[in-house]
Simulated assay, not measured.
Amino acid sequence: MRNRLAIFADPMIAVLLFATAMAFALPASGDGRESAQSVSNIAIFVLFLVNGMRIARGEIARGFTNWKFFVPLFAFVFVAMPLMGLGLSHLAIGALPPMVALGFLYLGTLPSTIQSATSYTSLAGGNVALSVVGAALINIAGVFITAPLFALLAGNEAADIGSETVIRIGVILILPFILGQMVQGWTIEWLRDRKAQVAWLDRVVIGIAVYVAFSGAVGQGLATLFGATGWAIMIALVIAYLIAASGGAWITGGLLGIERKDRIAFLFAGAQKSVAIGAPLAAILFPAEVAGFVIAPLLLYHLLQLMIAAPVASMLADD
């Protein structure tokens, strides 16, 4: 019997909470912050190398053949979700610190998360293979799309993606992924036999990136900028975003006439957002003292999506 109330079952929730608490209690500062940033960059490189090793090229190729599913999914993730984020960002201006308000737009431009989207699609009785390929394709696209899309919608004053940033993205995110794709013939089966260890690699790297980002924000007074009203507003906006995203993905799948199993895959691959891309990319796009503000809505959204995904998946499985 599935436990509808097992909202804290995903270890990622504990990792994110621990990393955030450590940033508030013992933030990295001065030379320590530079060292932590270097460790974070190396960890991100390793994570994307492993991602390249484990996402099969054949799955990517097969994904492009199901255009009736993937074209609407791409449009939902990279058009509808960013526009919703842009609207919430404008709504939050004045009520929240400017870079936190901008974080709603950043959240909207991110791809979906592979691991939890696939897990909850399976729990709900959806098309797991389609979910795996869909989330993988969106994550690959997100490496190339998120940064320029965010810069386009945010304006140059908010996101100056110059040559130095492009080089960092290429070296830390794209290069290791390509190298992983090149050697995956020798590594993919080995990694598949070690899914648990790979999952913990994801969590540890994300935890490091979150810790570094929030350390910078704490140093800039994040704790004092937020009162009870500010937290309530941000939580309310994130909940509204999550409801709109989940409801929009489910309704879109119905309007397109997608069969139920595929519609479940569309729901989780479309509405869930990836802190695995978001936290590392923010560390590259923004200075350390800014990144923590920008990813605040993302972390809250990610925590809430994990908390509600299990009961939602259980309800869909019981229908």
Rank of each mutant, 00 (worst) to 15 (best):
A199H: 14
G247R: 11
A217Q: 06
L201G: 07
I235H: 08
I258M: 13
Q197S: 13
G230E: 15
Y211S: 02
G221I: 02
L222R: 08
A217S: 05
A217P: 10
V198E: 05
I258P: 01
A213L: 12
L242R: 13
V238W: 00
Q197M: 13
Q197N: 15
G227I: 05
S215V: 03
V198W: 04
L255C: 13
D202H: 15
T224C: 01
G253Q: 03
L237I: 06
A196D: 08
A209Q: 14
T224D: 12
L256Y: 12
Y241F: 15
L237C: 02
V238R: 00
A232Y: 05
A209K: 07
I233C: 08
T252H: 02
E259S: 12
T224W: 04
F214C: 03
G257W: 00
V238S: 05
A240E: 01
L201I: 12
G219C: 05
G221K: 06
G207E: 07
M234F: 11
G248W: 01
L255M: 14
I251R: 09
A232D: 03
I258R: 01
S246K: 12
G207L: 06
Y241N: 02
L242E: 06
G221D: 08
W231H: 14
G221T: 05
D202G: 02
A199M: 08
I239P: 04
M234T: 08
Q197A: 14
G254T: 08
Y211C: 11
G227S: 11
V204C: 09
Q197E: 03
